[in-house]
Design a binder for these strands. Sequence first.
DNA 1: CTATTTGCAAACCCTTTGCAAAAAT
DNA 2: ATTTTTGCAAAGGGTTTGCAAATAG
Lengths: 137, 137
Amino acid sequence: MDLIPHLRERRLKVTPQRMSILKILNRHIHPSVDELYEEIRKDFPSISLATVYKNLNILKDTGMVFEINTHTNKSKLDIYMHPHAHIVCKKCGALFDMDFTDSVYAYKKELEKKIAGKITKFDVTATVDSCENCKIV
Amino acid sequence: MDLIPHLRERRLKVTPQRMSILKILNRHIHPSVDELYEEIRKDFPSISLATVYKNLNILKDTGMVFEINTHTNKSKLDIYMHPHAHIVCKKCGALFDMDFTDSVYAYKKELEKKIAGKITKFDVTATVDSCENCKIV
DNA sequence: CTATTTGCAAACCCTTTGCAAAAAT
DNA sequence: ATTTTTGCAAAGGGTTTGCAAATAG
């Protein structure tokens, strides 16, 4: 996927640091900020953590990146080029992407009634207490 | 609702500080930690913020309280005595409880397939970019 | 040429920790 | 009597900010 048009669309400058962040997020590995930082430093040893944070805030504000609370001390990052759901294990922090199903769109309609229209973006996070990754339980 | 049996069940001691926290959360006002702290101090001026945090961690770990990420700098707290969904406005942080609908249970079944069973608790957070509380769309 | 972005260091939260005294069972 | 909880103060950890230099368009 070519991410540059999405940056242009938002009047954001195409810097190598920013591209590096987006390319890593585009692997759909859901890194935490520090995992992302370490990953970028492999290709970009001089990058500052502040730059990573500043970019993430811009990318979140413009809707290209979504931050998912894992109920651990660190949240995880996901590129958000199309609506999808997240499934998080509260115990181990494991995170999966999931496409919305028809039943979720039905849920969305309910929501739209409840908040009186205008849902521009919709994210469903399903949190479970434990999952197969946990081993224990 | 009598919350004491729920504490006993979990072998948690019934202290006035803890009861004060639970009583406030039981109003379903979804306070942030500092809002909760200020509220408790009305009845309990000597309480320490550390006590509030320690209690919240215990209550979250034992499943009586749920912490909802609002995508603002502060998350919000909810008593969690029965499964329900949360709707959060990312822009203004407004938060609503919502009962699960059948369509969400269908979604839950999908999830159970995907993570191979054993969902012990299930939370759905629907995040919208703006809601009627925002005024500015 | 102008506006944005970067990088550094310091500041800023919010949250946790250690420990002794107090309270609950 | 034993275990948990409280409260204080200090430490911790993640995130933001201010500003000058560098870079993108």
